[in-house]
Nucleic acid binder design. Structure first.
Lengths: 114, 114
DNA sequence: TCTATGGTTCACCATATGGCGAACCAACAA
DNA sequence: TTGTTGGTTCGCCATATGGTGAACCATAGA
């Protein structure tokens, strides 16, 4: 629970970067080794590995090394967790504005009735 | 479009902090002035104002000054945008695993049939 | 007008982040 | 065994982030 918050910290931080979001997008099409993932980007390998590290410590991706090639894949649970938090917040907001809308409507009805 | 990406950057970055998420949670219950928002936290006003600035430049909240009190409120559009991106990604993932599940199932059927 | 309140700005600090190049290790291929 | 390829680690750098205290401004109230 208290840990959940730190998890959201790291997940949202991981998502707050276009490179890392692009990696996620790529991995949604299937697992891939590090150098293939790095191809589209101009930065050097060391910099790219840092991005992967951020993604992995956030739990958004996992990776496994076989021989000399490390293969990365998505772990969608954390993605769902982040989406869940947002959905929850929006639900509260939605409920509020729905009640507000209902209130405004009831006021309108009263006005018409008067 | 190209700007959309920067928007996601700032929104996710804004969400990657427990203080700022707490502020959002508070604001979901209704608009509030700065000092009231700052009450629950131990940090000084200047630090807290920086958090508000991050939230506001991300577009997650808006604020308006009347007299000497600045009132903050939620702007749910950006929240929805972030949720939308996540939902989109998860849909792709879901589609993939659904197809995978279908494939596994079809393999199972074949195995049973053999 | 004086004072307390709500907010703002400024200068400063420690740490985190995101990038680099260079050197290095390990495994597959010739 | 000797390259070559795929990753990794290291030291370094510039900038961003998140916090501080102190001074300051502006308005509401006595």
């Amino acid at each position: 629970m208290a840990n959940q918050q730190t998890a959201l910290d790291t997940v949202f931080h991981a998502l707050a970067d276009p490179t890392r979001r692009a990696v996620i997008g790529r991995l949604l099409q299937g697992a891939a080794p590090v150098t293939r993932l790095a191809e589209p980007f101009t930065m050097g390998l060391p910099a790219f590995l840092k991005h992967l590290a951020v993604l992995e410590t956030s739990g958004l991706i996992r990776s496994e090394k076989r021989g000399r090639v490390r293969t990365c894949r998505i772990d969608a649970d954390r993605l769902a967790a982040a989406e869940g938090w947002l959905a929850e917040q929006r639900a509260i907001w939605q409920g509020r504005t729905d009640r507000l809308a209902a209130f405004v409507e009831s006021q309108n009805s009263q006005e018409k009735a008067s």
